[in-house]
Structure formats: structure tokens, C-alpha cells
Amino acid sequence: MANDKKPVQTTAAPKALGPYAQAIVAGDMIYCAGQIPLDPATGNIVPGGVAEQTERVLENLRAVLKAAGSDLDRAVKTTVFIKNMNDFAAMNEVYGRPEYFGPNPPARSTVEVARLPRDVLVEIEVVALA
């Protein structure tokens, strides 16, 4: 059987921090690795709190999906990893903006975690239609 998974790589989003792809296209689906709030130009964590970090994470995910020929409005499932559930409302306000997922947001799980890479406040992964 042929290996029909294709890695996605773009400089419009931060480089992978380890041995993994920014995303994989498999069939008509795109599986994005979790993105954290790194500025792709500098590699630094964006300043501010969870709202600013969530904006950067979503923009990074949008860049990866666009490189794969898709966008956030084609997302079918997201997983949000948040450092502190007390930040949920601020994260959710940004996440819920119509410019990201449009009028039909994807299914979502949100979990509080003990620690995230580089001690950021939020990480999000996405599965989307190609």
C-alpha cells in the first residue's frame, strides 16, 4: 500500500521544536501538530497574556492550514491545552471570534495541563478538511 501522507512545512508558522511535522495531509484530512504562541519571524513567545497567546496560536495554525490548501473554517476538531482553567474565558473570547472558525466552529476539547512547551499558557491542535 502506498504511503499517501504528505508533510506540511511553512515558514509562515514556527518551525517544529522537535522531530515532527507542522501538519500531515492524509487523504482529505489535515492533522496539525499543536501550535504554541511563537512569533514565526523571531521564534520568541508573543508578549501578553492568554488572549494574545491564543491569537498567535490561531494565526500560526491558519498559516499551517493555508500551506496545506485549507483554512481554520474547514476545521472539524480542535484540542485546546490550557495551563490554567481560570484563563478559559479570555481564551474562549478570542477562540470564538468569527474571523477564525466562521459561523460553524469545530468540535472541541479543552483540558488544563500542568505544563506546556516553553511554559506558554495555551497550545492548540487542529484536524481539518483538506
Results as ranks from 00 to 15, higher is better:
Ala2His: 14
Lys5Asn: 02
Lys5Ala: 09
Lys6Trp: 03
Lys6Asp: 10
Pro7Gln: 09
Val8Glu: 01
Val8Ser: 01
Thr11Cys: 00
Ala12Arg: 07
Ala16Ser: 15
Leu17Cys: 02
Gly18Leu: 11
Gly18Met: 02
Ala23Gln: 02
Ala23Thr: 11
Ile24Glu: 08
Ile24Ser: 10
Ile24Asp: 06
Val25Ala: 05
Asp28Pro: 00
Asp28Met: 08
Tyr31Val: 15
Tyr31Lys: 07
Cys32Thr: 12
Cys32Asp: 07
Gly34Glu: 04
Gln35Lys: 12
Gln35Thr: 15
Ile36Thr: 07
Ala41Glu: 13
Ala41Asn: 12
Gly43Arg: 12
Asn44Asp: 14
Ile45Asp: 04
Ile45Trp: 02
Ile45Pro: 00
Gly48Pro: 09
Val50Cys: 05
Glu52Leu: 09
Thr54Lys: 09
Glu55Pro: 01
Arg56Tyr: 04
Val57Thr: 10
Leu61Ser: 12
Val64Ile: 14
Lys66Arg: 14
Ala67Arg: 06
Ala67Ser: 04
Ala68Ile: 06
Gly69Leu: 08
Ser70Ile: 05
Ser70Cys: 02
Asp71Gln: 11
Arg74Phe: 02
Arg74Gln: 07
Ala75Asp: 03
Val76Lys: 07
Lys77Val: 13
Thr79His: 06
Phe81Val: 12
Phe81Thr: 09
Phe81Arg: 11
Phe81Ala: 08
Ile82Lys: 10
Ile82Arg: 03
Asn84Glu: 15
Asn84Lys: 14
Asn86Phe: 06
Asn86Ile: 13
Asp87Ser: 13
Asp87Glu: 11
Met91Val: 09
Asn92Val: 04
Asn92Tyr: 08
Glu93Asn: 10
Arg97Ala: 15
Tyr100Asp: 01
Phe101Asp: 00
Pro103Arg: 08
Arg108Trp: 00
Ser109His: 08
Thr110Asn: 06
Thr110Gln: 02
Thr110Leu: 07
Thr110His: 00
Val111Trp: 01
Val113Ser: 03
Val113Pro: 02
Val113Glu: 03
Val113Phe: 01
Ala114Lys: 11
Arg115Phe: 01
Pro117Asn: 15
Arg118Phe: 13
Asp119Ser: 08
Asp119Trp: 11
Val120Lys: 07
Glu125Met: 13
Glu125Thr: 15
Val126Leu: 00
Val127Phe: 09
Ala128Phe: 06
Leu129Pro: 01
Leu129Arg: 13
Leu129Asn: 06
Leu129Lys: 04
